[in-house]
Design a protein around this nucleic acid. Structure first.
Lengths: 227, 227
DNA sequence: TATCTTAGTGTCATTTTGACTTTTAGTTCT
DNA sequence: AGAACTAAAAGTCAAAATGACACTAAGATA
């Protein structure tokens, strides 16, 4: 008992933070990446925006802690959750002394764009466009940029686009996710071809009605062999 | 002061460990992946083999800590060093109580096969073939498997094969690295084509003499746009 | 009925990939 | 010296993947 308390005095503190992505329509109606930030209510960086997070509870798993502070800030459940990186530079909080050093284990998460509408916004919690962030507390701008890089990378060789969408979706919606995240247009025909060749989606036979053109088929994600 | 000491008492301890890969020739003379392990001299898992590592010093960067314990166990400098993952499950050390919970930030490193020959072996530090590991302490078998997966993955879309080799190398040597890590044979002609197309190597004009066949050209790694 | 819009299919040229052949330049064997 | 041997280096070719684009289908709307 004594030994662990003693060694802790000279050990850095551990925190868990989460970069939470969703897609929401902007003024033009096209989807854009957005993420929630919380306003800091104490020094350092008081009043500036930061990633949601907090100290790791001794009896809590890392992913559980990430999931918990996702729920606490947004009242949402993650559709996807993955560890991003452990940030532990000595100069993360300029001016503070070593005894207050914090190592942050950062996760990134996706939440559905259907659910993200129900997410809370308040004085201290707001959603920002991922490409229009203000200057954040600590090294959080760096962290978000790395998370963005990882999301874009992973989207191309993995099947996680559907996690932004409800259970049933059209190929056009899925393509829109890719276009919003990767920030470039994709050829609808070629997109269909690759998605079908990968077996990433399963046709349901049902069609989406109410569009002002030919009704598109609804698909669901192919769970088998996903990751 | 008091506050950080108090909060530390209920915080997990932080350690840094490193999976160190090199390539060494086996009995048949072909290269195989090897890594150094240290024998635990105290409970838990006393007498079992484990990854080199130790507690994170309060005034030390994460990568610096990894580099340091690499130097301490093998007396080598890493040619490549990258963070792997932060492992923090509650059940990493079965039977121990929460106050002794350790979160390990694990790095993986490559060292040159030329230098690895000079690496120390002792009663408590030995090199093992990566595919013939004994049952390791804690969750270290899992960790090594994940590091292996990451190494193989990264080798295919990144340029790190040359980090196993000295400054000048032949394409056959580079190919041998790929073959040893990926554990499958590659067509020499196609390998040359892709490596040259990527611009991964720069011909030096010099040739390696003393082979019992046509002397191969020596290349060096193309540093520009490496990662 | 004609028009509009997107769904869904089809075509084709270019590039990339994998399997394989041929030529080259050295050593070794006879 | 010449033949045999080995791996380097260059070249060939068909199959597969990719990107650009045209065409047809099926609904809503005017």
């Amino acid at each position: 008992m004594v030994s662990s308390a003693q060694s802790s005095v000279i050990a850095p503190n551990l925190a868990v933070s989460t970069v939470i992505f969703t897609l929401r329509p902007n003024a033009d109606g096209c989807l854009k990446l957005a993420l929630p930030l919380v306003k800091r209510i104490r020094a350092p960086f008081e009043g500036q925006w930061a990633l949601p997070g907090g100290p790791l509870n001794i009896s809590e798993d890392l992913a559980t802690a990430a999931s918990r502070n996702l729920l606490e800030t947004t009242h949402l459940e993650p559709r996807y959750l993955e560890q991003l990186y452990a940030f532990g530079s000595l100069d993360r909080s300029p001016g503070s002394n070593l005894a207050d050093r914090v190592v942050s284990i950062v996760y990134w998460a996706l939440v559905g764009n259907d659910e993200a509408g129900t997410a809370v916004e308040s004085e201290n919690v707001q959603w920002f466009w991922a490409d229009e962030l203000p200057a954040l507390a600590f090294d959080h701008n760096e962290i978000v940029n790395y998370a963005l890089w990882r999301l874009r990378n992973k989207l191309e060789y993995s099947r996680l686009a559907h996690r932004f969408l409800p259970e049933l979706f059209t190929l056009a919606q899925l393509r829109e996710v890719y276009e919003a995240v990767l920030n470039r247009e994709l050829d609808p025909g070629n997109f269909r071809r690759t998605v079908e060749a990968e077996g990433a989606v399963v046709p349901t036979g049902e069609r989406l009605a109410g569009t002002k053109h030919r009704p598109p088929q609804l698909y669901r994600a192919n769970q088998t062999g996903e990751n």
